[in-house]
C-alpha cells in the first residue's frame, strides 16, 4: 500500500507550504496525480489527516473533476480530442476503431496495463483536426487507417524497452 513515505521530498514540502493556504485541495491533488498518475486511496486518507479535511470532502472534490483519476492509468494514454472541429472531422470513428482494435471501452485500460483510451475536451489544435495524443505525443489529421501504425509504434517501443531491460539484467 502506498503511503506518504513513498512521496519524494519535493512533494512533501509542497504539501507543507500549501497546507495553510486557502483552497489548497485541488492544487495538492494535481501534484499527487503528477507523481503517481492517479490519486491513490491510501494517500487520500492520509491527506485527510494532514490537512484536517474530512475524507468525504476529499472525495467530493476528487470525483467532481474529470481530470482526477482514482485508478492507475494505462502506461500509454490515448486521448482522442472530441472538440467540435475534431468531432465533425471524424473523431467518433477513431474512438470506435480504437475500441475495436484494443478490445476495451473508453476510460478502460488494456489487461496488460499498456493502453488506455479516453476522449478529451478540445485541446485547441482545431486546424489539425482530428487530433489525438498518446501521453505527450501529438498526432494530427489522424485517419482510421493510420491508427494501426500508431499503436504499433508504442508496442515496438515497449518491446525495445523490455529487451533493453533484459540485456541489462544479464
Amino acid at each position: 500500500m502506498l503511503t506518504m513515505k513513498d512521496l519524494p521530498e519535493k512533494l512533501i514540502s509542497f504539501i507543507q507550504t500549501w497546507k495553510e493556504k486557502e483552497g489548497n485541495l485541488i492544487m495538492i491533488f494535481h501534484e499527487i496525480q503528477n507523481h503517481f498518475g492517479y490519486v491513490p486511496r491510501s494517500i487520500a486518507f492520509e491527506l485527510s489527516e494532514i490537512l484536517d479535511v474530512p475524507v468525504a470532502r476529499i472525495y467530493e472534490v476528487l470525483t467532481f473533476y474529470s481530470q482526477f483519476k482514482l485508478e492507475p492509468p494505462g502506461k500509454y494514454i490515448i486521448s482522442v480530442c472530441m472538440g467540435t472541429a475534431c468531432y465533425l472531422k471524424g473523431a467518433p470513428g477513431l474512438i470506435e476503431e480504437l475500441e475495436d482494435m484494443l478490445n476495451i471501452k473508453q476510460g478502460q485500460s488494456t489487461e496488460d496495463g499498456l493502453f488506455e483510451i479516453q476522449s478529451v475536451r478540445c485541446i485547441g489544435c482545431c486546424s489539425a483536426a482530428p487530433v489525438l495524443t498518446v501521453n505527450d505525443d501529438v498526432y494530427t489529421k489522424v485517419e482510421k487507417s493510420g491508427l494501426k501504425d500508431i499503436i504499433k509504434e508504442y508496442m515496438n517501443r515497449e518491446k525495445a524497452e523490455s529487451n533493453k531491460a533484459q540485456v541489462t539484467s544479464k
Binding site: 485541488i26 492544487m27 491533488f29 494535481h30 473533476y65 474529470s66 481530470q67 482526477f68 475536451r121
Partner: peptide, 8 residues
C-alpha cells in the same frame, strides 16, 4: 495562478 481540473 490556480488550475482547473476538467470541469466546463
Amino acid at each position: 495562478v490556480r488550475m482547473g481540473a476538467g470541469a466546463f
